Amino acid sequence: MENPLAMLRVLVAEDEYFIAQDITNSLALLGATVVGPVSSGNKALRAIAELDIDAAVLDLNLEGTIDFAVADELTRRNLPFVFATGYDPAVIPSFRQDRPVREAVRHRRIGAAPS
């Protein structure tokens, strides 16, 4: 079976260590090269600016703050991403709701998210 994320560099922005490791391991099993994980919005923005990435998995709450600057930058660069979070999708403003939302506990489905 072909790995669905083979050859893709995927940024992981998640500040909870064990969740970040679990997502990272799952992405690697799907064939992705993981960038990060990074634990803050500033680190994610720096990675986007400085590193060659193809997609991203974002937690909504990084270091206690819900901030959409990373999602906005990925959108501006036309890079696909999913939100991996335990928050209700209603937390996401309507103009950002076109992105898939995956609960962190069900992250193994991230590879099946539409781009």
Rank of each mutant, 00 (worst) to 15 (best):
L8G: 11
R9W: 08
V10W: 02
L11F: 00
E14Q: 04
E14Y: 04
Y17F: 11
A20S: 12
A20E: 09
D22K: 02
T24V: 06
L27W: 02
A28W: 15
L29W: 00
L30M: 15
G31N: 04
T33N: 14
V34S: 01
V35R: 09
G36N: 01
G41S: 14
K43N: 13
A44G: 08
A47H: 02
A47T: 01
A49K: 14
E50P: 13
L51H: 13
D52N: 04
I53P: 09
D54Q: 00
A55Q: 08
V57L: 02
D59K: 02
D59S: 08
L60E: 08
L60W: 03
N61I: 03
I66T: 13
V70C: 06
A71S: 12
A71Q: 06
D72S: 14
D72E: 14
L74K: 01
T75Q: 03
T75R: 01
R76T: 09
R76K: 11
R77Y: 00
N78H: 13
F83I: 15
A84T: 07
G86D: 10
Y87F: 05
D88K: 05
P89H: 02
P89Q: 07
A90E: 12
A90H: 10
V91I: 05
V91G: 05
V91E: 06
I92Q: 07
P93K: 03
P93E: 12
S94L: 01
S94K: 10
F95P: 15
R96K: 12
D98K: 04
D98G: 12
P100Q: 13
P100F: 14
V101R: 05
R102F: 01
E103G: 08
A104Q: 05
V105E: 09
H107C: 04
I110G: 00
P114S: 15
S115L: 10
